[in-house]
Amino acid sequence: MANQATLSSSNKDLWAGGTEPFKASYGKLMMWFFLISDAFTFSAFLIAYGVIRFRHPGYEGSLSDFSFSQSYWPVPEKVFEAFPFFHGVELPLVFVGLMTFILILSSVTMVLAVEAGHRMDRQAVEKWMIWTIFGGLVFLGCQAWEWSHFIHGTDAGSKLLDGSMIYGANLQLNQYGPPDFAAFFFFITGFHGFHVFSGVALNFLIFYQATVGILERRGHYEMVEKVGLYWHFVDLVWVFVFTFFYLV
């Protein structure tokens, strides 16, 4: 009898929500599960990119003779070589590299905000959140420039199979290579950019809540941690996009 009583009371505790699975709070656990599903979405995008790339012939010749053509997949470092205010100068991958550093740095300031939250240091949380938001906004600005340049194209343009010229890119045609190339650029970097945008919005919300003292009155800064998980995930996805879209 005694045994039974113990069992039923402990069962009641379990189902009443008194325990935390994995010793992680509800919010953090659900954020992790959301991120796993989001990781699947991005994997599907990147794998689809790989599939479409492999079903097109690659460029065979040497890099110095490379020219854009509809009949093979372009070499990314020949497509992404522009930098603001350096018109016509070939700077392969420098701009995306800069964007990568900016996003990594804003991830670092986010960790510092989380660390400050553990110490209940409101001022430090505000400071590091502001830097994180700033990093996110700069990244979005860079991406806007990158898209604008991609859409408008280069001075030289390239010749389509029917002999007409095309400059830049849209969802049907582009000067860089097969139509799918631009479609994937827009989809993958656009979907990631939208994540950055919503990350900045969430970061701003947390910054606001910290500033007016909501989080302090709540007694903990766990919201910073949860939104931080999302923000690091955005950085993580960019690491993969950078490799598989720009480097390989």
Binding site: E115, A116, R119, M120, D121, R122, Q123, A124, T211, V212, G213, E216
Partner: peptide, 12 residues
Amino acid sequence: EPEISTIKPEPA
């Protein structure tokens, strides 16, 4: 309303 923090943060 914004308030002045009364909590003293732990040192880093």
